[in-house]
Nucleic acid binder design. Sequence first.
DNA 1: CGTTTTTGACCAGCGC
DNA 2: GCGCTGGTCAAAAACG
Length: 328
Amino acid sequence: MDPWVSSQPSLSLDLRVGVPPLGHRQAPAVAMVKPKVLVEETFLPIKKGPEVVALEAELQRMSAENRQLSEMLTAVAVKYEALQSQFSVVSANPSSTSEGGSVSPSRKRKSESLDDSPPPPQQHRHLHTPGGLVLADQTECTSGEPCMRIREECKPKISKLYVHVDPSDISLVVKDGYQWRKYGQKVTKDNPCPRAYFKCSFAPSCPVKKKVQRSAEDNTILVATYEGEHNHGQPPAAQQNSDGGSGKSAGKPPQVPAPVTHLSPHHQEHAAAAAVVVTGEQAAAASELIRRKLAEQMAMTLTRDPSFKAALVTALSGRILELSPTKD
DNA sequence: CGTTTTTGACCAGCGC
DNA sequence: GCGCTGGTCAAAAACG
């Protein structure tokens, strides 16, 4: 996250859900605007039953959790600023882009070690996409977002997605909205998990390929490396569940990995570093888009969370019961 | 029957 | 030149 968040009231990532505004508490650096309270504490005359007490305890817990998250966001924002200034320096010195140069789509291992050797921190950039994916590196916007490119004139269209999946899910399926046909699988030297090779099958002439491999460090993370640029639009949403399996999945049910809704600090760092990718007007446009989608995803995540729903329902029903005329 | 996946073989780049 | 490795091909299998 970056300071942009703090300046955008509509997209504030303040996570204090259902917590009464605490005037005495210093607001976290990242969340500056007045918190939106879903369950207003002063909604009704005070008459606390056991459910309300329990709910309050739950809200306190969530409050603490949110405070933690806010602190993490603050730390991430600080890191972002540091990286951004570093990036500005790098941008001012084009000679530092020594890894640039075109990479032909196939049989080019010479300059294509992106996948195997960890890139230097500044090049290891990740962005969360609305699908719960983490977009890394530069240049490629698989979802059609137009402005995530930087130094595209000197870099191949290579990007990475980091997808959190269930460890028990052995499939190498990354849901990104495109149709892919698997054409190979290989066990690589530095990772016991096999790497799967896919080609875009949505358009026959589409040159895009992707490699999917479980992270050696965290096998709940799938790393998808995209090469090339789609020469067609994104398939309609109805087809987005068929990724990897691309239509027929040979009898297997469509595997849809869980979105990255809970990121380890490691991945959050990546996400924060992502903001370094773009600067200037492109950065503004990209940031707005990304953050909007991030906020949407956050809302989606909350609404999908059964415990959150349960707490919300409990709170609302409790209030309604209190308001009920049958109550004496 | 058509399409996709699997998987062993093959090819090319790279380091020694 | 040789071996290692990653990437691709293509025949066979699997599936609806």
